[in-house]
Design a protein around this nucleic acid. Structure first.
Lengths: 205, 205
DNA sequence: TTGGCCAGATACTCTGAGTATGGAATATCC
DNA sequence: GGATATTCCATACTCAGAGTATCTGGCCAA
């Protein structure tokens, strides 16, 4: 681990600049509507640099996606780690997730465009981390004997997509804050009837 | 309303031929991977004819989509119309829907590609018919006092997307028939805990 | 018959992703 | 420390394919 030389710093800076421009443009104009020349120009570079660092347009998008995705996953994990009780962890995580949905970049990049650009299967591969989080929480709940339905990959998957849709609804609403609240209530009710039907309070043992 | 002349018959035939080729190619190769020249050639025509009948590639796709969508909606409506009791109508409709998901064209065109090609908002506009069906059934259920949650556009939307995801899961499975069964069970359980928690039997009054 | 019109064909433009190549700076080797 | 390889990025190109402009042959109405 030698200290980074000037050269390497420059290289990383151009790469980061490309990712930044791409994130900005993909978010604002959409993947199909932004050309690679634009991305490069916005970073004061040329397509040559871009193709040096990334395999192609899709690969560039994937990197951008991963960045945003990781950021959100991080906050969800942190929110969940604050508590121990399974149900509380789940609701905390969901809250953090829904809050993240107010983030324009997450909305546009991860929710709206990712499936269109990469296709559903590839997209699901990249979503595996998030799905894993949800799956783990549901299993915890099951172990604690707090769920009617036993967890299964299919259940997790279906619930995850439901959350994504709820998330998109938040982003599309004219008043996202209000929508956030409405969605929060609905999701809690849903989870409650699906999993916690036996408990009236979220904090019950 | 005069009888159709030869000429008009020919015109309708070429239009239909274009739609057929497009359906075939979009289904098999995907929207982005099929060129309009291919579509035209497959119908033994040229791009000129295609642009004469359709405003562009997206418009062509929309027509194809509408065709498939209407076909499925039709079967769902018919299945629901066979019974009167709200809960039975819902389960019948869902069964018909999930069966339809075994259809390759519905899978590829409506579920997989539509959002990518047209964008989510336009896609939802075209899904309005289907959503309306689900919404009506849920309201019926609520009127009959058979649901814990009161119906709302958001609830309908979220449940609808959940069904779409379940539908995609069916289509992707190595054994769609088996997946169909698994999904059927899960969906029934879910709806049961969300809406019919008070009833043990699907046919109870 | 004749002029207009419509379905469809032909030939074009133009954008943008991807490629080939060049060249300057830096790293590596002897 | 000079020669050589390698890295990073720029310039100049190809090529596919969506969309457009224009043409033509047949049908219908007057």
């Amino acid at each position: 681990m030698t200290v980074k030389g000037r050269r390497q710093e420059y290289v990383e800076a151009t790469r980061a600049a490309l990712l930044d421009s791409a994130l900005e443009l993909f978010t604002e104009k959409g993947f199909a509507q932004t050309s690679l020349d634009e991305v490069a120009a916005a970073a004061r570079l040329t397509k040559g640099a871009l193709y040096h660092h990334f395999a192609g347009k899709q690969a560039l998008f994937e990197q951008v996606l991963a960045t945003v995705n990781d950021r959100i996953a991080q906050t969800v994990v942190e929110a969940g780690a604050e508590v121990d009780e399974p149900w509380a962890r789940l609701t905390r995580g969901l809250d953090a997730f829904l809050d993240a949905c107010l983030d324009r970049e997450y909305q546009r990049i991860c929710l709206r465009q990712a499936p269109a650009v990469l296709g559903w299967e590839r997209c699901r591969e990249l979503e595996a981390g998030m799905m894993g989080l949800l799956d783990a929480m549901l299993r915890e709940l099951a172990v604690a004997g707090r769920s009617r339905l036993q967890p299964s990959p299919l259940l997790t998957r279906v619930l995850f997509r439901m959350l994504s849709e709820a998330a998109m609804a938040i982003g599309e609403a004219e008043d996202p804050k209000a929508a956030r609240v409405e969605v929060g209530v609905l999701v809690e009710e849903l989870l409650h009837s699906v999993h916690g039907g036996n408990a009236g309070s979220l904090t019950s043992r």
